[in-house]
């Protein structure tokens, strides 16, 4: 009996989650509402069945997520009866930090990275699940499944703990923590195939629909609410688009697509000629930008 690719990925992710549960004192699952988080949450339901996932979900809300994402988040948490912690950086909020007024770099740092650290510190979480995959980006390709962070949440890429077989070392001293990536070995295609196989609910923004967008620097930006100031001569146009990844709406580019269901998305994936993070403006800020952000505590 040889497991298929997806069966093996599923079993390995469940193994990782159980290992964290058994060894960490205060684990938490970072829930970003996207497709990877949806898969991760589904795997958690499987890993601990018939128990519910024995940890809370944490959503770091930058205040600029698509409205559909927030609605989906609240619906899912309620339907599954999960403990959902929503954290916002109140200082940043008070200062009015946003992607439009301050640019993507400052916004991401204050409202995402700093906010995440605040939440992890406040709850003294010693292990945090994240949905990152190694196929997303070059520095992520180098990261361990159990990624050690010092008391300042910093990652030291040149001095990672060796990770042998499926023997994970989750031991930390007070203040230190482990970021755990159960989806490390999954690819974007695996995620979609698994969502289809398991009928996992996802935010409808992933499916093509007529949406109001403007075109900026070659990116299609959806006008999700009236906070997006329109530039002179700019007018939202209804176009059939969908999103490959979901983040803050002013920073997330849509693609034109007819993929209105999972088969359509998978077909598009198989024919795709660009990687999914192309739609993420923050990765293009500088070479090795993700590595730098990760060192500073970004997920």
């Amino acid at each position: 009996m040889q497991l298929t690719h997806l069966q093996r990925l599923e079993a390995e992710s469940i193994h990782v989650m159980r290992e964290v549960m058994a060894e960490a004192e205060r684990p938490v699952m970072l829930y970003s509402i996207g497709k990877d988080s949806s898969v991760m949450l589904h795997l958690a339901l499987k890993a601990f069945h018939p128990s519910p996932p024995p940890f809370p979900l944490l959503h770091v809300d930058t205040g600029w997520k698509f409205r559909e994402m927030i609605a989906f988040r609240d619906r899912r948490a309620k339907a599954l009866g999960l403990n959902l912690i929503v954290h916002q950086n109140s200082e940043g909020l008070a200062k009015g930090i946003g992607p439009i007024s301050h640019g993507s770099e400052v916004h991401t740092d204050v409202m995402k990275t700093q906010a995440l650290k605040q939440a992890l510190d406040a709850h003294r979480f010693d292990a945090a699940f994240g949905g990152a995959r190694r196929d997303e980006e070059k520095s992520r390709a180098k990261e361990r499944v159990f990624s050690f962070r010092n008391e300042h949440h910093r990652w030291d890429p040149k001095n990672q703990r060796p990770e042998m077989w499926r023997l994970y070392n989750g031991r930390v001293r007070p203040g230190e923590s482990i970021r755990v990536f159960p989806l490390s070995n999954w690819t974007e295609l695996d995620i979609w195939l698994y969502i289809r196989k398991e009928s996992i609910p996802i935010v409808p923004l992933y499916f093509a629909a007529m949406r109001p967008v403007v075109e900026r620097e070659g990116q299609l930006i959806m006008v999700d609410d009236d906070r997006l100031p329109l530039r002179p001569g700019e007018a939202p146009r209804q176009r059939r688009v969908r999103f490959r990844t979901l983040g803050c709406y002013p920073l997330t580019g849509a693609i034109e697509s007819d993929a209105k269901d999972l088969d359509g998305i998978i077909r598009e994936m198989l024919l795709a000629r660009t990687s999914e993070r192309e739609g993420r403006l923050i990765d293009h800020d500088a070479t090795a930008s993700m590595e730098k952000k990760k060192q500073e505590g970004y997920f």
Partner: peptide
């Protein structure tokens, strides 16, 4: 994938590709 690797032209840590 790591900045230090590209600068030094050596592989420091294992990278995974699919």
């Amino acid at each position: 994938g790591l900045a230090a690797e590209r600068e030094q032209g050596i592989t420091i840590d294992v990278a995974y590709r699919h």
